[in-house]
């Protein structure tokens, strides 16, 4: 009996380790390749630890294309998207969670069902709309949607958090004559700061990782984001794997850093979407 339990426990760890290896190996391979020279990277059997560490790959990869420019562009888009989502999404979610008006449930239902709509359906008409306004090849089409409620997913998420706040709190304030604006700012917002962090983090990642949006809207190389820059890089240096991996690492790093800083919130956020759905 005892040995059986041991074997079972061992098997569980074995499978988990195998899964962990599958998750980590590609990332380790990426980093290891980004620190080697052309000769080492192709050596067989493969070398795992670069010798010497070639940090110059990074400076080389980063100077071939104007990655500084791309970094600034991406950051501008990400920051303005985050501000837009946090402001407009939280206000809208408050209305859906706490205020009553005719048509509210209908609109919320429509919002929820819009999550099932493939982005392919709206992509083309939205693109044509922006190009009629002469705003393609600018950051505006990539930022503007964030300022209109920030998408059904985020509204749903925040509303879920707001609903979990006991109603007595804001009702008491309301009786005392506080306005909705006041309740929102001095009661709801402070109580749901973690929720805002979750939404902010998701927005950061979605915006940082976006590929199709910039691909469709940005033509000028000076307006490229990191993702587009990387794609461009691939076209030019396809065989120079060490430089490609260095460039990919640079694009990946901020996402990883943000993830580790906000890890707790990420897990909480995903959990919420899954269970309450």
């Amino acid at each position: 009996m005892r040995t059986k339990a041991w074997v079972e426990k061992g098997l569980v760890y074995l499978v988990l380790m195998a899964g962990g290896l599958f998750s980590l190996l590609p990332l380790i391979w990426l980093i290891r390749s980004s620190l080697m020279d052309m000769g080492q990277i192709f050596e067989l059997p493969p070398i795992w630890i670069p010798n010497p560490f070639r940090f110059s790959n990074f400076s080389e990869a980063l100077t071939i294309l104007p990655f500084g420019r791309y970094f600034i562009n991406t950051t501008v888009i990400v920051i303005f998207s985050m501000i837009g989502v946090l402001v407009t999404c939280s206000i809208s979610a408050y209305s859906f969670a706490r205020m009553s008006w005719r048509g509210r449930d209908l609109i919320f239902g429509l919002l929820l069902s819009s999550m099932m709509l493939p982005y392919a359906v709206t992509l083309i008409p939205t693109f044509i709309g922006w190009s009629k306004l002469g705003l393609t090849n600018s950051f505006i089409p990539l930022i503007a949607p964030a300022w209109f409620g920030g998408g059904a997913f985020n509204i749903f998420l925040l509303r879920q958090f707001y609903l979990s706040i006991p109603r007595d709190l804001d009702e008491a304030a309301y009786v005392d004559g506080a306005s909705h604006g006041r309740i929102f700012i001095s009661i709801i917002i402070p109580l749901t700061r973690p929720a805002l962090v979750v939404v902010g983090l998701f927005t950061f990642l979605a915006s940082w990782n976006d590929f199709l949006g910039p691909l469709v809207y940005l033509n000028d190389e000076s307006k490229y984001t990191l993702a587009l820059g990387l794609q461009q890089f691939k076209g030019m240096y396809a065989a120079e794997w060490h430089l490609m991996m260095a460039a990919a690492t640079v694009v990946l790093a901020p996402a990883i850093i943000v993830f580790f800083i906000g890890q707790r919130y990420f897990i909480e956020g995903i959990t919420l979407t899954g269970i309450k759905a």
Binding site: S23, L27, N209, F211, L230, A247, I256, F259
Partner: peptide, 13 residues
Amino acid sequence: LPSIVPIIAISFI
């Protein structure tokens, strides 16, 4: 961890 990697970087890797 892998799910936060940008799709372009995933493709490269």
